[in-house]
């Protein structure tokens, strides 16, 4: 060991000894890095499993979309079958509609051209088919004028009675 040539008179109280702080630093650094590494590993693992999990969910959703699209197509197909002319004809017959003909078109046109009459106006009946008030009636009237007339007659009959009654009262008052 080398002898230091320090003066004997000089106090060594203020002399600070050098500390060997490197191991602690390394230790700390290693610890921090280790922690980062471990956290990083955990983080990466978590991300990995999350990604797999999301992948599985994504795959399920994609499959679901495919299934829903397939279902949509199946429903469109069912709708097309239900809307095929044959099926519509059956349904139309059930509710009493008849096929569109030139006579129906004329009935529609006349119905559209006809002025709107007030409800209180009397209904006049002749042997020609009356002008229908709405589309369904137009079709019915065009094809079943006799039925329409009979129906209209039923409506009118009570009105006739009321007019007769009015006439009677007027006659009485005149007397």
């Amino acid at each position: 060991m080398r002898k230091r040539n320090s003066p004997q008179t000089k106090s060594n109280q203020n002399i600070k000894r050098e500390h060997d702080s490197i191991p602690w630093r390394y230790l700390l650094m290693t610890l921090v890095c280790g922690l980062f590494l471990i956290v990083g590993f955990f983080f990466a693992a978590r991300q990995h499993f999350y990604s797999i999990d999301y992948g599985i969910k994504n795959s399920r959703l994609r499959k679901q979309i495919d299934e829903l699209e397939a279902e949509k197509r199946r429903l469109i197909l069912q709708k097309e079958i239900a809307l095929s002319p044959g099926e519509i004809k059956k349904a139309a017959k059930k509710i009493g509609l008849t096929a569109m003909t030139a006579s129906n078109i004329e009935a529609f046109r006349s119905a559209a051209d006809a002025p709107v009459k007030p409800k209180t106006e009397k209904i006049s009946i002749d042997k020609t088919p009356e002008k229908p008030s709405d589309a369904k009636d137009a079709i019915m009237a065009a094809n079943k004028p006799a039925e329409k007339i009979a129906k209209a007659e039923k409506i009118v009959k009570p009105e006739k009675k009321t007019t007769d009654a009015k006439d009677k009262t007027q006659a009485k008052s005149a007397k």
Partner: peptide, 18 residues
């Protein structure tokens, strides 16, 4: 013709008999 012309919204140009 009688079936499709009304459907095509062709306006009748002759007398219509009911």
């Amino acid at each position: 013709a009688e079936g499709i012309l009304p459907e095509m919204s062709v306006i009748p140009d002759a007398n219509i008999k009911f």
